[in-house]
Simulated scan of single mutants.
Amino acid sequence: MVFEIKKFEGIISTVEEFELFRTSVGTPSERAANKVISFIDEHVSEFISNSPFLTMATANSEGQCDVSPRGDHPGFVSVIDEQHLFIPERPGNKRMDSAQNIITNPNIGLIFLIPGLGETLRVNGKAYICRDPELLEMSAVNGRVPLFGILVEVQECYVHCAKALIRSSLWKPDLWPEKETLPSVPQMLVDHAKIPNVTSEEVAKSLQEGYVNRLY
């Protein structure tokens, strides 16, 4: 399929153009080409057990994509065996974007992060909405059992290099922006949601109350 994007120059839109461009990029090293494994080994399991945060990429049946964050204490993602892991679903905004995508398109991509470590872990596979009682009980926090979780049938695992995190200085607090200069999320929500007679102060209070009382 060829997309017409008249506003921009240099758009690569065909397989032939891409293959020609790819030759100028070069070929991956032997290490990069061979680093992908198809199961959860001891190294992947150790990485997941130390990760408190991941991003979850899904797409619907039409290919429209969504990336959602997931976070909890290290080890919140359970490695079931060499081919399966389980991600408990904690209370959120109830949009259920990822879950709805999985119903029509089970393909999923995950990136696991560990604070202070530049390298990340990428996991790709098939996802299923899972309500297995044993897995849910195993994922309970403060006596609260999740309603469901995402079961991932692993197809690919591989480490991603640290260049992106080095360039971003993500793990360097001394380079973080001053809090006063950060975007106002409450004001963003007020302007985007356009709910009448709701102020950014009220939204900020509601968000904070949820962060304190509705994490699990």
Rank of each mutant, 00 (worst) to 15 (best):
S13C: 13
V15P: 11
E17S: 04
F18V: 05
F18E: 10
L20W: 01
R22S: 12
T23L: 10
T23A: 12
S24Y: 12
S24M: 14
S24T: 11
V25W: 09
G26L: 12
T27I: 12
A33W: 04
A33K: 04
K35Q: 04
K35M: 10
I37M: 08
E42M: 07
H43L: 15
H43N: 14
S45W: 03
E46S: 05
E46C: 08
S49Q: 00
S51P: 06
F53G: 12
T55L: 01
A57Y: 01
A57L: 02
T58H: 02
N60K: 01
S61L: 13
E62A: 15
E62D: 11
G63N: 09
Q64V: 09
C65P: 05
D66L: 03
P69G: 07
R70E: 01
G71W: 01
D72H: 01
H73C: 14
H73G: 09
H73F: 11
P74D: 09
V77C: 00
S78E: 07
V79K: 06
Q83F: 09
Q83N: 11
H84V: 10
H84E: 08
L85K: 06
E89W: 00
R90W: 13
R90P: 01
G92S: 06
N93S: 12
K94Q: 11
K94E: 10
S98G: 05
S98K: 03
Q100D: 14
I102R: 08
I103E: 14
T104R: 11
N105Q: 08
N105R: 05
P106I: 07
L110M: 04
I111W: 08
P115Q: 10
G116S: 03
G118E: 03
E119P: 12
R122N: 02
N124H: 12
N124F: 06
G125M: 08
G125H: 03
K126C: 14
K126P: 07
K126T: 15
A127T: 04
I129F: 02
C130R: 01
R131D: 08
D132H: 02
D132R: 02
D132T: 04
P133C: 05
E134T: 15
L135D: 03
L135V: 15
E137C: 06
M138K: 11
S139C: 10
V145F: 02
